Simulated scan of single mutants.
Amino acid sequence: MYTPRSFAIDDLQQMQQHMLDTRLAMVVTHGAQGLQASHLPLLLRPDEGPNGTLYGHFARTNPQWKELQEGAEALVIFAGADAYVSPGFYPSKAEHGKVVPTWNYVAVHAYGTAQVITDAEPLLDLVSALTDRHEAGRAQPWKVADAPADYIDGMLKAIVGFALPIQRLEGKRKLSQNRSSADMAGVREGLAASPDAQDRALAHLMP
């Protein structure tokens, strides 16, 4: 990921929190079948390894898991809030007019080589942990154990899990840090006043 110094995130906890907050990630691999990508909910265990370990699963019929089994490196993309930045947000537009549109966003990229999980017991632990995470906060959380055991056994045979120790992390917060303080304030105020929820979310992240 191209990351100018002023946009880089260097803090591990900040990058891990972004991953925890991202509900759906993109897992990208390159192998014998060429480039492949899957959108997956992932579980991050921050204390496993120097950068944390990601857990998830593919449908067994999705051939991408075979790339992981064969040792292909994976790129996992955690996209965050993003927003179009209009030149009209910049006070400097009225001063000299030398402004153009851009896009602000937050993203974290994680890289690593995964171990494939096919045994029923660790797969059950994985899907149970993922379910508990996303059911948390509901009035009556659903649990994997609520379904018939034989049905769950069949479902587990239809998936392949993986554990991906994160070997490298890249984080980027492009939030108009390369602009003057007046222009940054203009962007923040413009996005905060937008009817679009993503614009307002990004405004909240701006310094």
Rank of each mutant, 00 (worst) to 15 (best):
L35D: 08
P148K: 04
A114N: 01
G161P: 01
E73K: 09
V144F: 00
A114F: 00
L44T: 06
Y84D: 11
L164I: 01
R168N: 08
A203S: 05
G31L: 00
L35Q: 04
V108C: 01
Q177L: 09
T118N: 01
P165I: 00
L43S: 15
T22R: 06
R60E: 14
L156I: 12
A107E: 10
R173L: 12
L175E: 06
V108H: 00
A83E: 08
G52A: 07
L20E: 13
V28I: 15
Q33S: 15
A147N: 12
D183S: 07
A114C: 04
R179G: 08
S176P: 00
A114S: 07
S128R: 02
M155W: 05
T102S: 08
L164D: 03
A59V: 03
H30K: 07
E121W: 05
M19P: 00
H30L: 12
S181E: 11
D153W: 04
E70D: 14
Q115Y: 05
F78M: 11
L191P: 06
E135L: 08
P91K: 11
H57D: 11
Y55I: 09
H204G: 13
L126K: 05
L68I: 02
E170K: 04
V100H: 00
V116R: 02
Q140V: 14
D196W: 13
K93N: 12
Y2R: 05
G190H: 08
H18K: 07
D199I: 01
W103G: 08
L75R: 00
G112F: 00
L164E: 02
V28H: 06
R5Q: 13
R45T: 15
E95S: 14
G71W: 02
Q64F: 04
H30G: 10
A197T: 09
Q167D: 06
G190A: 11
D183G: 05
K172R: 12
Y90F: 11
G97E: 06
A8H: 13
L191A: 05
A147H: 12
A114V: 00
V127N: 01
M155Q: 15
S128A: 07
T61E: 10
G190Q: 09
G171C: 03
N104C: 03
H57F: 09
P41M: 03
R23P: 13
H57M: 10
H96E: 10
N178G: 04
K172P: 07
I166K: 01
S6R: 08
G71M: 02
L68T: 07
Y2I: 05
E135Q: 13
K157G: 14
V100F: 02
E170A: 10
M26G: 09
P50G: 15
I166G: 03
A158Y: 03
S128P: 02
G80P: 00
H204W: 14
P195A: 00
P101Y: 01
K172W: 11
R45Y: 15
L42P: 01
Q115C: 14
A197I: 07
Q14E: 10
V100M: 04
L12W: 03
A81V: 11
A120P: 02
N178F: 09
